[in-house]
Simulated assay, not measured.
Amino acid sequence: MKKVLITGMAGFIGYHLAKLLVNNNYEVVGLDNINDYYDQNLKLARLEDLGFDTSKIAYNTLLVGNNISFIKLDLTDLENIKQLFKNQQFSYVVNLAAQAGVRYSLKNPHSYVDSNITGFLNILESCRAYPVEHLVFASSSSVYGLSEEIPFSEDNCTDHPLAMYAASKKANEMMAHSYANLYNIPSTGLRFFTVYGPWGRPDMALHIFTKAIVNDEEFEVFNNGDMSRDFTYVGDIVESIKRLLPLAPKSNADFNLKKPVSSKSSKPYQIFNIGNNSPVALMDFIKAIEKALNKKGKIVFKPMQPGDVKSTYANVESLFNYINFKPSTDLEEGVKLFVNNYLKLNT
């Protein structure tokens, strides 16, 4: 039985990945600092759904369940992170913990350096000290920044981030490559494209729009609704990660050093887009929510926000071919599953 560390397990994707891996005969150890960036009760509810008595959570104390354990730790705590690696001897690490959110990075940029750069450095240092078979880490579609070369390909220019969140994720990619080079740590970065589904974060559009419509409140839609996103259902995302875990990159002697591409390397390193390859107009997304709730929303149109992009559209053929899997969840079906879960948790 392979042992997997999931950082950010109380988070949206981490929770779903833990459930899937346990059901597929992996031993999971989850780590999270349960910070207050958004409602801590939602994070605790996810952990309870995974079988933990959250009243027993204490810092740096491992709660042990049936093939799943949880420890409250901060990624900036290098000493205890290293001790966890030493004690557990992980086969795989999936680093999903991060300070999320583009708009929040305009208000609190220092938190992105602490969590996303110092925290990730501590994961890399721990993987160096206690080697793993594969490190999978979360990057973001936001690294494409100013690029208008649609659909986004992994080898597009990513040198023009629009906010600190994107800059920190670009830094993660470069840091991982340096450790793959120096210490032979097999590393795969995943550029996520607008993940949605049950138990989703309350700062994300699907939750904000649904809550507003349910409560008969106005909600803001930016760029006057002229936006599109490559919405991808969370179940398809975690299935992709599960398939990727045993497929660690290897050193590649055929890599062309005179014409290098950014998504591959002569070292054991690779980058993939992970998305649906099918962008959806934001207004169509809102219509799907309205249909699931059988209720119209009160939209207030606003101009584009600083740091935002008009559209995201992933070229994900590389990942499809690598793991032999393509997302298949229909948007209306995925939105309905979220809405049903939202109503269950909030009514």
Score class of each variant (00 low, 15 high):
residue 55 S to N: 12
residue 79 E to L: 04
residue 132 V to I: 14
residue 343 L to P: 12
residue 326 K to T: 13
residue 29 V to Q: 14
residue 186 P to C: 07
residue 64 V to I: 14
residue 158 T to W: 07
residue 255 F to V: 14
residue 298 K to P: 00
residue 167 A to N: 03
residue 138 A to P: 00
residue 93 V to C: 05
residue 325 F to P: 15
residue 248 A to G: 09
residue 194 T to Y: 15
residue 14 G to E: 03
residue 244 L to V: 04
residue 118 T to N: 14
residue 140 S to T: 11
residue 54 T to S: 05
residue 183 Y to G: 00
residue 279 P to I: 01
residue 214 V to R: 13
residue 252 N to F: 12
residue 206 L to T: 06
residue 148 E to N: 15
residue 331 L to T: 03
residue 4 V to E: 06
residue 175 M to H: 04
residue 206 L to D: 08
residue 144 Y to E: 04
residue 191 R to V: 12
residue 32 D to A: 07
residue 290 E to S: 08
residue 2 K to N: 15
residue 274 I to Y: 07
residue 215 N to L: 12
residue 177 H to F: 11
residue 37 Y to I: 09
residue 113 V to M: 11
residue 328 S to P: 00
residue 206 L to A: 08
residue 151 P to T: 04
residue 233 Y to F: 15
residue 318 S to I: 08
residue 56 K to N: 11
residue 170 K to R: 13
residue 329 T to W: 01
residue 175 M to Q: 13
residue 104 Y to M: 07
residue 70 F to N: 11
residue 345 L to P: 00
residue 115 S to N: 12
residue 214 V to D: 02
residue 299 I to D: 02
residue 233 Y to D: 11
residue 235 G to A: 13
residue 135 L to H: 05
residue 121 L to C: 05
residue 36 D to K: 13
residue 326 K to A: 04
residue 55 S to W: 07
residue 279 P to L: 04
residue 153 S to Q: 15
residue 72 K to H: 08
residue 295 K to S: 03
residue 106 L to P: 00
residue 57 I to N: 12
residue 256 N to T: 05
residue 47 L to M: 07
residue 170 K to C: 02
residue 27 E to I: 13
residue 289 I to E: 06
residue 288 A to Q: 13
residue 106 L to D: 00
residue 338 F to N: 00
residue 151 P to H: 06
